[in-house]
Amino acid sequence: MTIADKMRETEQFNDPEQWRFDGEQSYTRDQWLDLLPTTSGLTQLHPDQPAEILDAVGGAIDSFDGRFTMN
């Protein structure tokens, strides 16, 4: 059962709408490494723990010529 189904069951809401936003965003290595700690599970780690993960992610991005595009 979906959240939309649960909403319908309550009869307290109009039928939910599904919105979709298609798009792409290109990121450089530095842009992604600046963004990653603010939007991921890294926010839950002790401050000294993300460095190893960011180094590994940076290396992966470097293998794609330092940039990638995300849908």
Rank of each mutant, 00 (worst) to 15 (best):
residue 31 Q to A: 12
residue 44 Q to Y: 12
residue 20 R to P: 01
residue 33 L to D: 02
residue 63 S to H: 11
residue 45 L to T: 09
residue 54 L to D: 02
residue 18 Q to S: 10
residue 28 T to G: 03
residue 2 T to N: 09
residue 56 A to W: 10
residue 38 T to L: 06
residue 6 K to E: 05
residue 17 E to W: 05
residue 20 R to Y: 12
residue 65 D to K: 12
residue 70 M to K: 14
residue 4 A to I: 00
residue 60 A to K: 12
residue 67 R to K: 12
residue 8 R to A: 06
residue 43 T to H: 03
residue 24 E to A: 06
residue 5 D to K: 06
residue 8 R to P: 02
residue 70 M to C: 08
residue 67 R to Y: 00
residue 30 D to W: 03
residue 19 W to R: 05
residue 20 R to H: 14
residue 14 N to Q: 15
residue 53 I to M: 06
residue 8 R to V: 08
residue 11 E to P: 00
residue 1 M to A: 14
residue 10 T to C: 07
residue 52 E to T: 09
residue 57 V to L: 05
residue 25 Q to L: 10
residue 7 M to T: 10
residue 19 W to D: 02
residue 20 R to A: 10
residue 65 D to F: 04
residue 47 P to L: 03
residue 1 M to I: 09
residue 23 G to W: 09
residue 45 L to F: 11
residue 31 Q to E: 15
residue 17 E to Y: 11
residue 15 D to F: 00
residue 35 L to V: 03
residue 19 W to V: 11
residue 60 A to N: 05
residue 24 E to C: 08
residue 27 Y to D: 05
residue 39 T to E: 02
residue 43 T to Q: 15
residue 4 A to P: 02
residue 11 E to H: 10
residue 64 F to A: 10
residue 31 Q to W: 02
residue 65 D to W: 03
residue 14 N to W: 09
residue 42 L to V: 03
residue 55 D to N: 11
residue 20 R to D: 09
residue 40 S to Y: 11
residue 70 M to D: 11
residue 10 T to V: 01
residue 7 M to H: 08
residue 17 E to T: 11
residue 40 S to K: 10
residue 29 R to F: 02
residue 71 N to P: 14
residue 7 M to S: 11
residue 18 Q to E: 13
residue 54 L to S: 01
residue 36 L to G: 00
residue 29 R to K: 15
residue 62 D to P: 11
residue 58 G to A: 07
residue 59 G to H: 10
residue 43 T to F: 09
residue 14 N to T: 13
residue 3 I to N: 04
residue 16 P to A: 03
residue 36 L to M: 07
residue 15 D to Q: 08
residue 4 A to C: 02
residue 17 E to G: 03
residue 1 M to L: 10
residue 48 D to K: 12
residue 8 R to M: 06
residue 58 G to C: 04
residue 21 F to R: 05
residue 43 T to V: 14
residue 28 T to S: 15
residue 22 D to Y: 12
residue 24 E to Y: 11
residue 53 I to C: 02
residue 33 L to W: 01
residue 3 I to H: 07
residue 68 F to T: 05
residue 15 D to G: 00
residue 36 L to W: 02
residue 70 M to R: 13
residue 68 F to G: 06
residue 59 G to V: 00
residue 62 D to E: 15
residue 70 M to V: 15
residue 68 F to Y: 14
residue 59 G to T: 13
residue 28 T to F: 04
residue 20 R to V: 12
residue 43 T to A: 13
residue 64 F to L: 09
residue 10 T to Y: 05
residue 32 W to M: 15
